[in-house]
Design a protein around this nucleic acid. Sequence first.
RNA 1: CGCGGGAUGGAGCAGCCAGGUAGCUCGUCAGGCUCAUAACCUGAAGGUCGUUAGUUCAAAUCUAACUCCCGCAACCA
Length: 515
Amino acid sequence: MGANNSYYITTPIYYVNDKPHIGHAYTTLACDVMARFKRLDGYDVHFLTGTDEHGQKVEKAAAAKGINPQKFTDDVSQNFRDLADKMGLSHDDFIRTTENRHKKSVQALWQRLLDAGDIYLGSYAGWYAIRDEAFYAESELTKNSDGKFIAPSGAETEWVEEESYFFKLSAWGDKLLKFYDDNPDFIMPKTRRNEVISFVKGGLRDLSISRTTFNWGVDVPNDEKHIMYVWLDALTNYLTAVGFPNENSDLYKKFWPADLHMVGKDIIRFHGVYWPAFLLAANLPTPKRVFAHGWWTNEGQKISKSLGNVIDPLELIHTYGLDQTRYFLLREVPFGKDGDFSRKAMAQRMNSELANDFGNLCQRSLSMVFKNCDEKIPTPAAFNDDDNKLLNDCQQLLPILRGHLDVQAFHKGLESIWKVIGAANRYVDAQAPWGLKKTNPERMTTVLYVLSDIIRQLAILTQPFMPISCGKILDQLEISADDRDFKNLSNSITSGISLTKPQGVFPRFIEDNQE
RNA sequence: CGCGGGAUGGAGCAGCCAGGUAGCUCGUCAGGCUCAUAACCUGAAGGUCGUUAGUUCAAAUCUAACUCCCGCAACCA
């Protein structure tokens, strides 16, 4: 079992043949925020992302380029590493399914399933579309002018008959239903859980887990005709990354079972059904949660390659800034639901919530400190009720945030922080420190001290969401790197520290005429 | 009758489970302040809570029917 203060979180592995898009960025970003939050909260975190590099599509794409598949995947998996870098992601490991450690791991899991009697050799036949890597029912197909059967996606299909190994998924339905029952939070949000349960109740078919028609995959142990197919290979990466099959490795003992698999809603079934079935069959501990988030639309329109409205996360970062993009994606939509990206909404949140609310709170407060307190954090007199009320609101924030992030309610977490930001802005107006300068300088000093400390706390708490900008605020307050985690929240800021001249951290967004 | 979610002021949402003055954010309008990134604060206007019927002293909240939208329906971010 994973240790109490450990936290293992994963993104799906991304299929290298895709171009990184907002869906990938979104999933990984959510994990990054969770990982950063847990680290600041004192957990030992293992944050995994990576790429899925096998399959017929990759084999064909490589052949089309005249290079071997390994070289091809080396190149394209770099796209995902680049995205991770540009998004400032804090992953601890980047796994590739073509690595040796992974091949060993999947083969070991295969062997366990075989030994347990859950894998058998059979065969199947059906209409297969290479482009989609999918089988279709005859009823779904249409005939084109050449007499070929066309899938709903438009891809040509061919009749395929093939020997294949199967996983006895059909035997696991009742056990899975009991598992969901015993672990009500295993699949979140609830609507996805209901979907999965109703799917399982509908009866499960055995799952084809090998192929003989192409070679780019992990070899099936003791049967060189076969390679493993998709989900057994892909899902097992979560085990590989913590040292499986070595169950005595430090990583494994510390981090398995995983605390959270973050996925898009499109792959909830594989994570919610196949994965626990594999693990139960192999007699391995099951992960604690699979969270399926929603999809984005672009200006109200469904995103699709054919419409050409795919959102490039790098373009967003370039236009709006990294932290701003991170903030928007996690604040705009209740996490778990579908959401819409629009330039108007983006600019709106940037200006209103980042520049006006948070940015301006920092700027107006720290400017007054800098000008009126000898460029130092002032020494306060006794706090009055107003001061204590605000400080107390801020102290309440960490437990509130924990509650929200433990159920991946990022939007609520941010909302609760922004409530305190609002309270702080009202406090500034009510106390009007600029007026106290002549009438009661000691009181002014106290108010500015309170504000400095509030800003320190707010910046510390907001770091998981916007690490760079919060880092800048903490730099301005001369908070050392060691003093930026959550256990420092209850220590007050030290009087007498010299400040650097405050500079705006969240610029307003001015819409270009173009775009 | 396949399963599930949703319809609340201009926009996006909360409230519904445990019925009893309809709340939040943005936008709009008016005022205040002047420390600050034309930022901040206060107030106002604006909704017969998808339709119809029912239960009840009382329904956005419960029941029934209906309309519309959206997910899922086997191997696809």
